[in-house]
Nucleic acid binder design. Sequence first.
DNA 1: GGAAGTACTGATATATATGTCAGTAGCTGC
DNA 2: GCAGCTACTGACATATATATCAGTACTTCC
Lengths: 122, 122
Amino acid sequence: MLKNGKSVLLDVNSRRYYCQVELAMDLLGGKWKGVILWYLQGDTLRFTELRKRIVTISEKMLIRELRELEKAGLITRKVYPEVPPKVEYSLSDFGQTLAPLLSAVSDFGMSYALKFGQQVEE
Amino acid sequence: MLKNGKSVLLDVNSRRYYCQVELAMDLLGGKWKGVILWYLQGDTLRFTELRKRIVTISEKMLIRELRELEKAGLITRKVYPEVPPKVEYSLSDFGQTLAPLLSAVSDFGMSYALKFGQQVEE
DNA sequence: GGAAGTACTGATATATATGTCAGTAGCTGC
DNA sequence: GCAGCTACTGACATATATATCAGTACTTCC
């Protein structure tokens, strides 16, 4: 809410949000988007490389999430005209501005795990 | 992945995560948790006050999310033995450590809206 | 005695997210 | 000519998240 008691509305891609946090969580939420962005930080990765790093994701979901992140302007997809196919994913310039967010998320996850969880190596 | 090629597993509340970002997003994800935490930053709010601020949330969801955030140790619930009931919600000490995360999320949402959206006042 | 206020609960419905499985194109190497 | 590689696609099933609606307890105030 603003000082005058009115609410700020954000219209983005035909969706309406009442708060910038709502918008951000809609873009980054879900089970995998954060993880994908995290692995793409500072790295350019091929589809298969991403799949190997994100152990438990299904190919189906990985593709879908990559498409959505691309549509949102956060990542870039580069196709090489080769056989077998080669496609590289990386953060877009705008996606790079996620750096502080991603490291805050990572820090939080880590300190939560240290506080409440057990850590196991396999 | 660690340097030795092994993956770090996190066991938290009987759930297994392969990455701290995955854990964090599981705790904070969904449509409302981020917004709730955002409004509780620096404020202690009653149930009804929260509901008024988060215009479009249903009571059902607000209660459920508050319960989960409490269970996760991120917020504190204080009940006053009065009639009509009075219950106050605020960030726990640990929840306060979300400050940098929340402001990064808010900043990102704002800059995304400025870049791709229209802003409307109602 | 009846309405109003607060913080809920529960049943049920719907929507969205995620998973599983099978299959494909085009080239390479055997 | 057949398997293998890569980055996918589509049909379908299931799980989870979210919404809608009705109702409740206890007190105060009129």
